[in-house]
Simulated scan of single mutants.
Amino acid sequence: MKHFLTLATMGLALAGSLAATAAEAGQRSRNVSVQGANGHGYNRSRSVSRQPGATSVNRSIQTNSGRGVSSSRTASWGNGSYAGGATHTTNNGTSWGRSTSAVRNEDGSINATTTRTRPDGSTGTVTRSTQPY
């Protein structure tokens, strides 16, 4: 009986982890509108897409007075590499963000590069390398 309960518990744990994995993959979105007196208010949206080895998130907030910002974040990984970043853009066209790429080499070392773009259009790049222990 004890052996059966152990197997049943392991089966339930496996089923729960598979259900959690299936629930995490896919797309979700949400839109919220808040409106107040005298025309004050905003609209906010968010969409998320998750797949094995990749994810992306898009967000936006827009006020009734015409101000707002949109943001996009992406990431992908697999086979010892990673690429990701974020971009933010205001309604007046000002944009800034960052991007990162990293690769794990066969010897276990990692090479990574991050580039940031500032609202004034200037960029800065940082390159890092780590050695295996």
Rank of each mutant, 00 (worst) to 15 (best):
M1E: 11
L5T: 13
L7V: 14
A8T: 11
T9F: 14
M10A: 12
G11C: 11
L12R: 07
S17R: 10
L18V: 10
A19C: 01
A19K: 14
A20V: 13
T21F: 08
T21N: 11
A22N: 09
A23W: 03
E24N: 15
A25P: 05
A25T: 10
Q27M: 11
R28M: 10
S29W: 09
R30F: 15
V32H: 07
S33P: 05
V34S: 07
V34P: 01
Q35I: 13
A37H: 09
A37K: 11
H40Y: 11
Y42C: 07
Y42F: 12
S45Y: 12
R46P: 01
S47P: 00
P52C: 00
S56I: 00
V57M: 07
R59E: 15
R59Y: 15
I61P: 05
T63C: 03
S65I: 08
G66A: 04
G66L: 00
R67I: 12
V69C: 08
V69Q: 02
S71R: 12
S72I: 03
S76D: 01
W77I: 00
N79G: 10
Y82G: 02
A83L: 11
G84Y: 00
T89I: 11
N92V: 07
T94S: 05
T94Q: 14
S95H: 02
S95C: 06
R98P: 06
S101A: 09
A102G: 08
V103C: 01
R104L: 04
N105E: 08
D107R: 04
G108I: 03
N111F: 04
A112L: 08
T115G: 01
T115P: 05
R116K: 14
R116W: 13
R116F: 12
T117A: 02
P119T: 01
D120T: 06
G121H: 04
T125K: 08
V126N: 10
T130W: 04
P132G: 05
P132T: 07
Y133T: 12
